[in-house]
Design a protein around this nucleic acid. Structure first.
Lengths: 201, 201, 201, 201
DNA sequence: GATGAATGAGGATTCATTCAT
DNA sequence: AATGAATGAATCCTCATTCAT
């Protein structure tokens, strides 16, 4: 597949001939379907992002509990990139080579999905299961965390199972790292309500 | 400066001649100081990472309280990349072009610094200011979150001030998003101690 | 028609696909009838030259007076290229692309026809209607003049009607540009008989 | 020289590498001085046209008699292309490959020079050495005749010396081909003055 | 017979690197 | 030490031609 070659050798390092060889077709054939090497590459990226979305969607399709949907989505996201390292490369390459082109495919996808997660969180807040924090910001934070985790895993060769990583992430995101006492002290100092909407328990 | 040109045009898109023009020297002169275009680029990346480290270090130098050191470091990190967008580009370019080279400069830096933050957190746990969670994992999570935030800001054009972002991040990391009640319910269900070492409050 | 496409885009600039599109057939079909693009092109040129010949021949078919045949042929020649600019292009293209091939089609045609005109002129000389100059040379001069006129019209965008041009050409060719007095002076100086075979009138 | 290679192999048939080899330099060196193969070619054409002009100008520089200037210019023109067959090829190639570019170099040159010859002829008419025919048209006719002669020589391999050709051309142009009697008959029939301004002899 | 998908040789152009000045 | 002219390896893309359907 073209994605594998691009991922292995990078966009500038990939000769279209190599992609042709990988696919077992002539170089000209590729140019019949993609006007330029660039379009060929972008199609591969797009395909990757679509598969990510499909896998995350599939992971939550039978899950009703909103909190559990978050749990499953985080796991599915990490699982996808764990199994598709080539996709991470493609995302990097896209950004590096086509800076001035358009919003990278990953962020197109992100923008298209983010609303659903915000809605989900708003429901959790109404149900008093989530603290009353601005959901948009929380979704951003979690999105960035996942994005950063994916890249770091790939670049720095993190050696923890994606299941363990999901657990670590959710532990921090759900409960935070501070003790109750410390948090209350800080909240008092800053003058913030401790638990959203003044509700304590 | 070379970094600016590389950041603007990307590594493959940059002619050494352009760097020479930017610096106001002859192309040959650059080759007197850097054996290849590649080394010239890597030197620019290295310089960027060093400046990041210096800025973060400076931000905590007069801060004694460990928790406050975290707060300041997070702010300094985001402030640095906010003010040095070119550096983000350089980090991406480095990864995209030199996949097979060595650990990227950013991660070299990360590995060199991570121990200090783990030590700091271990102290917080001992002081019962942080829940007793494995510090290594927490440091990873926070590192990934910052890394992902930096990239997302740059790529997707996030329009929130870095101060606000720091606050959002710290709010989630310090306290998590769940209400107390929800957390306890989950903790009970999973069979986890709620607040580290069985300590409640 | 193939000729139009070749004329518009030049031989190297023309894809066989474009010719196929113009004709409303598949590319493969063209290759059923012409073994190569080159042969396809040469066939178009040949067709053009044949049409030129037919038009010139038709213009003199009912003309008995030899001098009038010349007049009509000159007009027909200029009229043809005036109405078939694409043919001029084809003649140029043929020469430019197939230098080493064979005598260009136009000159094949020229050689095939030149004898008839020489015979015609010989008759005029015998009838004392033409000066006794070597007919071969005169035919060459007139042929070159027409050839040059056709090209110049096409390339430089001459804006005179072909009828006017025919008249201008015949005026010069029939009578020359000098006054009688000047001509006699020159002839005396060079030692040439003034009017062929010493005949004055 | 680049001109020779282009003339020998045609523009599309010439690899820039071949020009480089001919010149004994690297291919890249050529691209330092000419941005494209096309510009390299056009520069060669331009140089040829300039040399033509210089040679024709030189041939008349010491000649005072206007009629003799015409004689010498015709000889110089034919002599130039006789000695520089490559130039003819270049002129053809230019037209064939760059149809849509601009007025071909030859015609630029033609337009720049034609005025001088028209002036010269006007003087001849005033001196009653030339029949009173529109000089512009006569200059066109002679220009086309020379142009056509040059091409035909090159394409059809005419085997007459350029001196002989010049003589043939001038004989026709100066005196025309008809006998006096025939011309007068025609002139009477058409109702034209026989010798310009009613002058007979 | 007609088609057009597949092919891959071919060529213009770029640009990192060298080295004489 | 500094320069920039010269170099040629490297690569994207085109398009004439083939041939299975």
């Amino acid at each position: 597949m073209a994605a594998r070659v691009f991922a292995e050798r990078g966009f500038p390092g990939t000769d279209v001939q190599e992609v042709a060889d990988e696919l077992g077709v002539g170089k000209g054939t590729i140019y019949r379907y993609f006007p330029t090497k660039r379009e060929l590459f972008l199609a591969a990226v797009d395909r990757g992002v679509r598969r990510l979305r499909a896998q995350v969607d599939a992971s939550v399709i039978d899950v009703d509990d909103p909190l559990e949907r978050i749990v499953q989505a985080v796991r599915a996201y990490l699982a996808f990139f764990d199994a598709n390292a080539a996709c991470v490369e493609l995302l990097i390459q896209e950004r590096a080579e086509f800076k001035d082109h358009k919003k990278p495919a990953y962020f197109e996808h992100r923008d298209a999905n983010i609303g659903r997660w915000e809605d989900l969180m708003r429901g959790l807040v109404e149900d008093r299961r989530m603290r009353d924090v601005p959901v948009q910001r929380v979704v951003d934070v979690i999105g960035d965390l996942l994005y950063g985790t994916m890249f770091t895993n790939h670049f720095a060769g993190r050696r923890r199972s994606f299941e363990q990583q999901a657990e670590d992430i959710l532990d921090v995101v759900f409960r935070g790292i501070l003790t109750d006492r410390e948090w209350k002290k800080r909240a008092a100092a800053i003058g913030k309500p401790r638990d959203g909407k003044g509700v304590t328990r």
